[in-house]
Design a protein around this nucleic acid. Structure first.
Length: 311
DNA sequence: ACCCAGGCGGGCG
DNA sequence: CGCCCGCATGGG
């Protein structure tokens, strides 16, 4: 593929630890509707009124991240912020790699970053995530962007739409949303959209006060403790948050609680004491490892057994 | 057929 | 408070 067809390079980042592949396979809000081409390691998506196209040349552990688009300072700052490129991964890895469980996950998914997403976008994505799986979350979010988003880029080959604002969604009808696959979550979506438009300003919440932030977010219909943690982590960049979903619960019980069933409160307490201010990064590595390494092992087993059958 | 998926709100004790 | 249940939908 000719680079020219992507337009001009607007900025370029040389990074010590950045993997677009692992970042985009790790089930974060922007990956729920981005158009990602793993062969070219090229990502396209709409963010607010921006269109982003990024290409990563990975030279593990060094990477070059090229950004195609408008050559402006605001644009490059947006990319910088969203991909948390100022995170000192060396320092973070040292802080969370306290045992082989985390250090092995870091080795496998070296360069995976948390992303910093728009608060409303994160809220909607994780309301949809409840009692759902990643594949379907991706589908539903894409459907919503396709149906309610505005075109931010179009070149004849690819069209990219922005994520709809709460105001753009609050008047959506129930049947309209259910047609997009939202199911029983449809009422949460319209209720949250109205609340975030009229009763709370997500853009004025204090990102640094973890407990306060979480309790404010839980005022939103359809946002409980787990979803609030996801929003705090990926929508506000509060790295103290430790979202405890079914995967993390199982993983934590197995690795740190001797296989015993424990409550999310016990897990939060452990995470806070053990990983401290970077607990959120530990969570993302354990979560991605639990899902992906398991899949890879299953594929390997499958390939092995079929190979044995053939032999 | 049955079980599971980045859970939540409501109702009950 | 804590516990239990129903909730839509598609894939393994």
């Amino acid at each position: 593929m000719a680079i020219a067809q992507y337009g001009n390079v607007s900025c370029e980042f040389r990074l010590e630890a950045f993997s677009m592949k692992h970042t985009f396979e790790s089930a974060q809000p922007l990956t729920f509707y981005a158009d990602y081409d793993p062969k070219a390691n090229l990502l396209s998506y709409g963010a607010g009124k921006l269109f982003m196209r990024l290409e990563s040349k990975e030279r593990n552990p060094k990477a070059v991240l090229k950004v195609y688009g408008k050559r402006s300072k605001a644009y490059s700052l947006e990319v910088y912020k969203r991909f948390r490129l100022d995170d000192n991964m060396d320092k973070i890895y040292k802080a969370i790699a306290k045992d082989s469980h985390v250090s092995e996950a870091i080795a496998r998914y070296y360069g995976m970053r948390l992303t910093l997403n728009d608060p409303w976008e994160t809220t909607l994505c994780f309301i949809i995530s409840q009692f759902n799986n990643v594949k379907r979350i991706r589908l539903i979010v894409s459907n919503i962007v396709e149906r309610f988003g505005n075109v931010v880029y179009s070149d004849g080959k690819i069209t990219v739409k922005s994520f709809p604002t709460s105001e753009e969604l609050k008047n959506a009808t129930d049947s309209e949303l259910r047609a997009l696959g939202t199911g029983f979550r449809s009422k949460y979506i319209t209720s949250a959209a109205a609340f975030c438009t009229d009763n709370i300003n997500l853009y004025k919440l204090n990102a640094n006060n973890y407990e306060k932030l979480k309790s404010r977010l839980m005022e939103i219909d359809g946002v409980g403790e787990k979803v609030a943690d996801c929003i705090a982590l990926m929508g506000y960049g509060n790295l103290s948050a430790f979202p405890t979903d079914v995967w993390i619960k199982r993983t934590m019980e197995k690795l740190y609680f001797d296989g015993k069933k424990v409550k999310p409160r016990d897990i939060h307490e452990f995470a806070k004491d053990y990983w401290g201010p970077y607990a959120g990064y530990a969570q993302q590595y354990l979560f991605h490892n639990a899902r992906t390494y398991r899949e890879d092992k299953q594929k390997a087993e499958k390939g092995k057994s079929s190979a044995e059958q053939q032999a």
